[in-house]
């Protein structure tokens, strides 16, 4: 049994739990986007950051992957954490301004607009990759992944053409934290064509 503190409240955890799991078990809310209970955490969105304090010194870590340890001093809603989350949300607002979910979350933290350049006002996807993790770990189909690199990175089937690996279960649409998968789904499931010869379709 590991004992430590979250927001000055004494909590207990088992070895192997993460800070996020322990917080949730004790009814402490930490916002998340790319985290889903059905799959392994990946730490892509950084929204679940918490502050770990040790005397005068403190650091900010992601709670979804941080393992519990004896004597931790975790703050989930301190000023520093709120600042980091506001920065993240401001960046997300620039990345996917069209997502209602992101807008609502930003408004909760008092972020109404962004100072970063908006490249695509229609964008909804934060490229957290939750959809592809669910597709691989829950469905086992491995139909979608990130395609391209850098600023060209997007979510889709290989070569952005409908794939017969997709079983059209819609798990990616259900778990998507920003509602972006909805418009991408049709380009993944499609109607798979029979390949007549290698190279020819």
């Amino acid at each position: 049994m590991i004992k430590f503190k979250i927001n000055d409240q004494q909590v207990q955890a088992q070895p192997g739990w993460t800070v996020l799991e322990t917080a949730r078990q004790h009814g402490i809310n930490i916002p998340t986007l790319c985290y889903h209970e059905a799959v392994e955490p990946s730490g892509a969105c950084r929204l679940c950051v918490v502050e770990l304090r040790e005397g005068d010194w403190s650091k900010v870590v992601i709670s979804c992957m941080y393992p519990v340890a004896e004597g931790l001093n975790v703050y989930t809603d301190s000023q520093r954490v709120k600042n980091v989350r506001r920065w993240i949300l401001e960046m997300l607002l620039a990345e996917c301004p069209a997502s209602k979910e992101i807008q609502a979350l930003a408004a909760e933290y008092g972020v109404g607009s962004t100072r970063f350049a908006v490249h695509n006002p229609e964008e909804q996807c934060i490229l957290c990759g939750l959809c592809s993790r669910v597709c691989a770990q829950v469905v086992g189909a491995n139909a979608i992944s990130t395609v391209g690199r850098g600023v060209h990175k997007q979510i889709g089937a290989p070569y952005m053409i409908p794939t017969d690996k997709c079983v059209a279960c819609g798990c990616c649409v259900t778990v998507c934290p920003t509602g972006a998968m909805r418009s991408r789904f049709d380009a993944v499931r499609g109607v798979p064509k029979v390949v007549l010869a290698h190279g020819a379709r």
Partner: peptide
């Protein structure tokens, strides 16, 4: 609180 997380599963 969360049946699906490690504490809930145990």
């Amino acid at each position: 609180p969360f049946a699906c997380l490690t504490p809930g599963l145990s």
